[in-house]
Design a protein around this nucleic acid. Structure first.
Lengths: 225, 225
DNA sequence: CTTTTTGATGACCGTCTGGTCATGATTTGG
DNA sequence: CCAAATCATGACCAGACGGTCATCAAAAAG
């Protein structure tokens, strides 16, 4: 029996995948979830580059050969692991950018930024693990297992620059270079949220969105009438 | 011949180390520098967890056995590699904290923060490699080879909190939780400086210190007369 | 109930890696 | 010049690791 050239969750041309909700479908989903959950816990403690497939499958309680039925390699697993975080982050930034396009008042501007904060907040609540993994690893070199995280980090910065570009076009920011304001905001937000996820002593975490808005609105805001 | 239980650059009780400036002393320093330089280049591209001792010694042009004459393991090398960055960062933060203790005017406060910016600026100029390595890896899990970097990251946050505590004591910051303002500033500064070191398109990089001061002084500043 | 298809398994293989060490080269100090 | 000390070397070793695969188990479909 030869290896299929391109592995898939359900192989294309599969003749008997079983019906949705059936035993096979249920087992496949459960196994993938077990592997992803196990990997996440190990990545959070050890970093994405210090975890072996053996570690993951042992923690997930499945045989090593099963890993390769669901994932080409660890990079493929990480890609799937951070998919929810990618969707939430990129969606929030795009929505904020579009809202700012129409933001002709300072109130609408604050609302757009608040939308980002809220989306990030919900990300922290719904997917704290993937969010924390992203925040921990997003600046280290995007090689091997970490590639999907590095790609998302680049996307986040690109979108943040778009948000800043639109904000500045409306005269809503000081005439600082867009790449500078985008990075300052992203950097501050990332470290603050990482602190929350790491249970660092942060005081009243409900003040964090305020702090961020303060940074953006008061710190970078253009002094216009 | 048995292994010494604790390796050192010059073994304790060494009988003929050679005089300072002598052939051995010179060769030792050159070899350590070659290994550290090689390791730095590899760590920057691949991450601290994806580099083998063989990689380092090959790039440095020395035999593998020589590596272990100078370093216990890679963690020891990283400890030494970031020593200049650690000195500069901690010294700058401590100086700023002390200056803020005496800062009774807004001008003195700005001067203290500017001192941090200048120290960071000189760090980027004098040790761009170690600075970039620190910025890339400082949030990923502090295990194995990355331990020294994680320890420095914790120290930086601790000192930043002290700086914020003093600033707030003087009523120079809004009454936001100290951990929040400290992290916001550190996060913004780190991402901005990383952008410079990665040659990301940042516009006029001379505006970055201004952006940081803007964030701190205008964004977090208490609205006092 | 049976055949076909899909999934699970963990031993196996080749490569990678940390770390050691016997041997020889070089430096030191008298 | 010489004995002692220090340094350099890269083959070697044992274990770690990614990925495969022959075999068996389980599910699907008729």
């Amino acid at each position: 029996m030869t290896r299929r050239s391109s592995k898939r969750q359900v192989p294309r041309g599969s003749k008997r995948p079983g019906k949705p909700g059936g035993v096979r479908d249920t087992n496949r989903k459960a196994r993938k979830a077990a592997l992803i959950d196990a990997a996440l816990l190990l990545y959070l403690d050890h970093g994405v580059s210090n975890v072996a497939v053996d570690d993951i499958t042992t923690k997930a309680g499945v045989a090593k050969g099963s890993f390769y039925r669901y994932f080409e390699d660890q990079e493929a697993l990480v890609e799937e692991l951070i998919a929810p975080a990618r969707r939430t982050l990129t969606s929030a930034l795009i929505t904020a950018r579009d809202m700012l396009e129409d933001a002709v008042t300072a109130e609408r501007q604050i609302e757009a930024y608040r939308g980002i904060g809220e989306a990030l907040g919900s990300l922290l609540l719904e997917s704290p693990g993937p969010a924390r993994l992203y925040l921990q690893e997003c600046r280290a070199p995007a090689v091997g297992t970490r590639k999907p995280i590095g790609a998302l980090a680049k996307r986040v910065i690109d979108l943040a620059e778009e948000v800043s570009t639109v904000a500045q076009k409306h005269g809503l920011l000081k005439p600082l270079p867009v790449p500078v304001t985008a990075r300052a905001v992203v950097g501050a937000a990332e470290r603050l949220f990482l602190g929350v996820l790491l249970d660092e002593e942060m005081g009243n975490v409900l003040e964090i969105p305020l702090a961020l808005v303060t940074l953006v609105v008061d710190g970078l805001r253009a002094r216009t009438a």
